[in-house]
Design a protein around this nucleic acid. Structure first.
Lengths: 218, 218
DNA sequence: TTCCATTTGTTCGTATGTATG
DNA sequence: CCATACATACGAACAAATGGA
């Protein structure tokens, strides 16, 4: 008998998945030009049609933007809020701050109630990486953001975590700016993040919400 | 100068347009099987790839559904009707409720501070339409939603209002359900909406936020 | 400015795999 | 089992747009 284990995955799907993964992982960021079709043909060892089909599918979901005679560019990192990311390239810092505030308090509240052991591992990892890096470095900003995203995932509400991720791209600038110009010392900022983590770990939702608010006030 | 009149239309686009037109005109109705790919090849005098590309594009817009080994069927007659359901298929009602709650309180808060006279006009219009329609009707649900969307616009934060709109589609069911099964009377629900409107009109942000919370508890 | 190499866009042909009735 | 119909993949050729020399 021909017991098919699972659905067979088409080559083009494999290629588009791989590309999407590379985009999500940050290997290609928004605005970056991805390799040309001939290069992708060689990378994945498939025909041009297959490459093009994969690109097309990512174009339709809004992750890529193709310019004839020029190349293919990353236009968003998250398929869900792809349209939004494109739209908000020129949005005001204040709008972002407000949206972040709105989402993050609720997220912290929920995360404290729902975090799994796995969530905790990711959060702890990001937190430690954050602490050991030099402040003001680009890596520190990324690690900071990664911690907040891990919190968002721990809230186990796909809409909220996706919404948070959709604005995460814009938070990097804000975080970098904040880390440089804050009136608080590095130790105090570290401490606030520790408190947030502990509150979520212990399931103290009100404390978690308060901790987030303090972080947002930095 | 090389004044290009318009973009040249690809063959596959021409075919898909033609097919869409035939569907819209009723030549093929919902559930009908359209001609096979070889038949379409002959009808439009194009290659199979071109036919397939046209069909694929209509599949993505939701007008057609393809069944391997069987045929291609009309699944909708209007491209706007077909789109949205797929994305949030894995989202629970509770997720939507939480996201709505999260956004709407902040929105009300901001709207009270920033509403313009124009915003007020739209909100008032939606509110009156809402009141005069029979409860439980589809129109009432739409008017209800329209009022909340007009509030979202009045917050003058594009990110928040767009996020709200992005889940609005799913709120219709929630609102309809709520209007049917609420413990509150129609008059009480109307009153809560009036209070929200008045609070925003008067710029009372805390009152507006409280009013929204009560509406969300219905 | 023109010209050219690069890059994507469109279309065709063909072969083979898979699902349905 | 088989004919039919769709799915996937490869190769090839030419068109069109772009950016830089």
């Amino acid at each position: 008998m021909t017991n098919k284990p699972l659905k067979r995955e088409s080559l083009s799907k494999q290629v588009s998945d791989k590309l999407e993964e590379m985009i999500a992982s940050g290997e290609y960021s928004i605005g970056d030009k991805i390799p040309t079709e001939p290069e992708l043909m060689e990378m994945f060892n498939v025909s041009r049609n297959t490459v093009r089909e994969a690109i097309q599918s990512l174009t339709w979901t809004g992750l890529l933007e193709v310019k004839q005679g020029d190349g293919t560019y990353v236009s968003a990192t998250n398929r869900f809020y792809a349209n939004m990311e494109k739209k908000y390239r020129e949005v005001s810092l204040e709008d972002i701050r407000e949206a972040r505030n709105c989402l993050e308090v609720t997220i912290a509240h929920l995360a404290a109630q729902r975090r799994t052991d796995e969530d905790i591992i990711y959060m702890k990892e990001a937190l430690e990486k954050r602490k050991e890096l030099i402040v003001d470095s680009k890596e520190n900003t990324s690690a900071d953001l990664l911690f907040h995203i891990s919190v968002a995932k721990a809230c186990h509400n796909n809409i909220l975590s996706d919404m948070y991720q959709s604005i995460a791209y814009y938070l990097e600038n804000q975080i970098a700016d904040r880390n440089e110009n804050s009136s608080l010392s590095t130790e105090e900022i570290d401490r606030l993040h520790e408190i947030l983590f502990k509150s979520i770990l212990d399931g103290k939702k009100e404390a978690a919400a308060r901790a987030v608010q303090k972080i947002l006030e930095i």
